[in-house]
Amino acid sequence: MKVRRWSKEAPWHILLILTAVLSLLPFIWMLATAFKPEPEIFAGGLNPLPAVPTLANFRFVMERVPLFRYFANTLLAAVLITGLKMVTSILAAYGFTRFRFRGREFIFYLCLVSIFVPVQVTMLPNYLLISHLGWLNSFAGLVIPQLADAMGIFLLRQSIRTVPVSLFEAARIDGAGHLAVLRRVLLPAIKPAVVALAILFFINAWNEYYWPLLVLNDKSMYTLPLALQMFTNQEGGTAWGVMMAAASLTALPPLVVYLLTQRYVVDSFINSGLKG
């Protein structure tokens, strides 16, 4: 019986193991190369693991670029974007679910459409607006255009709709204002969805490349993903170990966040309304 089940499952496992290995291999090469001394890299070969691990590449990155500054820039922008985007999304999701008003469906539909408006259509005017406001190379210009997200509103709205209406009404009868209901009743009830969304917002904000590329050209304002381009041009073209060390440092924070919250994120992703 057991053998029969295994033979039935085996082909699926083979496919899944293959996919998992292909997903991980580039990470392994990145990390391993970052710890390899230069002669070992130039010797070639297919063994990703360094024979004599070294930190020289990381030290070199820190000498070459103001790493802590870039780290701080990226962290600050990502935290600001995550926090404020959560606020606008939660408020809007509450507004769309707990009130009836004329034009509600139309406005919600409008927000939904915005998810699908491609960035290329909006980037020129947005760049011109930020430039006109004198916000190029500033946190304001980097952060403010990224503070609303219709997908976040959509997902939170789906979660709020699973909360029994009686819970809200009881609190309202007790005389609680909307903000108090939101804080004391709603947020605890949908906490898993809120936390998962915040994690995803943070990871996406950390990784953002497109918008920083447009509004930041002062090197002291760079974020880590943007700083990586300095290692792909001639200056650092062949220093593979250094390039991989910089890439590892950029990838590390989102990877750590993901490893710590992995079960939570993946499962709430699957259980969230993201079934479209």
Partner: peptide, 26 residues
């Protein structure tokens, strides 16, 4: 299912800029 889900989702959390640099090397 859990380990498969976790491993296959993992590259999704890193920046496309990092992915580009890794593949430039590969």
């Amino acid at each position: 299912q859990t380990p498969y889900k976790a491993l296959i989702f993992a590259p999704g959390v890193i920046s496309l800029a990092v992915a580009s640099v890794i593949f430039l090397w590969l």
